[in-house]
């Protein structure tokens, strides 16, 4: 166990576990966001958002989530650096013409950085006003006063640029996940010739469902805001 995390497979294990953890986070995130589509003036969404701001979650789970991100990003960076070193100083003059290799698999770091950039914008848009500055209006639902997160979201999505950015971020995430999902299981060793095909199919479906889910919400909010 001692030096597991300094071995190449150990580092990959961390990438895999943190990745899978972030995937579960995505599921939670998407489920809550889907509440935006309920035509109740944002009530359900606000309740859910308020629940997520409970101290237990805020101080108990958020740091874990943050750790997930940090581990995934830090080890991604370490592995990329090490792998570049292992590739050697001399690059191939004739490039790489190997076919049948998924584009995403060779560009996970680039995709990761894209997602990271999106994450930063996302934090500025929501996390800072909601959890740090509290520069958000409030609403009372069922006698409980809470942030009017719904209005914040709805306002944000009136900006077509934000919508486009949101869609790009989601698509980047999809591509990242088409490789990341099955790859996580491969790294855990939970794969073989048969399961590789299954994980790839499940992963691809999952990636696009999640990503398109986020996209649909963004576009619907934009469309809804302009029409109603």
């Amino acid at each position: 166990m001692s030096n597991l995390l300094s071995s190449s497979i150990g580092r990959k294990l961390l990438m895999s576990l943190s990745g899978l953890f972030l995937i579960t986070f995505l599921v939670v995130h998407l489920s809550i966001n889907l509440l935006l589509l309920i035509p109740d003036g944002g009530e359900a969404f606000n309740v859910a958002a308020n629940f997520m701001a409970l101290p237990l979650i805020k101080f108990g789970l958020q740091p874990v989530l943050a750790l997930g991100f940090i581990v995934h990003i830090a080890y991604g960076a370490i592995l990329t650096a090490k792998n570049n070193k292992a590739r050697g100083n001399n690059k191939y003059a004739s490039g790489n013409n190997t076919k049948e290799v998924m584009w995403a698999s060779k560009n996970m770091a680039v995709l990761g950085v894209t997602i990271l950039a999106f994450l930063a914008v996302h934090m500025v848009d929501y996390w800072i006003p909601l959890q740090i500055t509290h520069a958000v209006g409030s609403v009372t639902i069922g006698g409980v006063e809470m942030h009017d997160t719904y209005s914040l979201v709805a306002a944000n999505f009136q900006n077509p640029l934000k919508v486009v950015l949101y869609v790009i971020g989601s698509l980047g995430l999809a591509v990242h996940l088409t490789h990341g999902f099955w790859s996580a299981f491969q790294t855990l060793g939970a794969s073989n010739t048969i399961w590789r095909k299954r994980w790839t199919v499940i992963g691809t479906v999952f990636a696009w469902v999640v990503s398109l889910g986020f996209c649909v919400i963004a576009i619907a909010m934009y469309a809804c805001g302009s029409c109603c």
Partner: peptide
């Protein structure tokens, strides 16, 4: 370097050794 599961190796392997073996090694 470490494996990032791109699968280029099995495509270029002249003997068609599968990366299912890499999953087994990880295990």
């Amino acid at each position: 370097g470490a494996c990032t599961n791109t699968g280029a190796c099995e495509v270029e392997c002249p003997k068609g050794v599968s990366i299912a073996n890499i999953a087994r090694l990880n295990r």
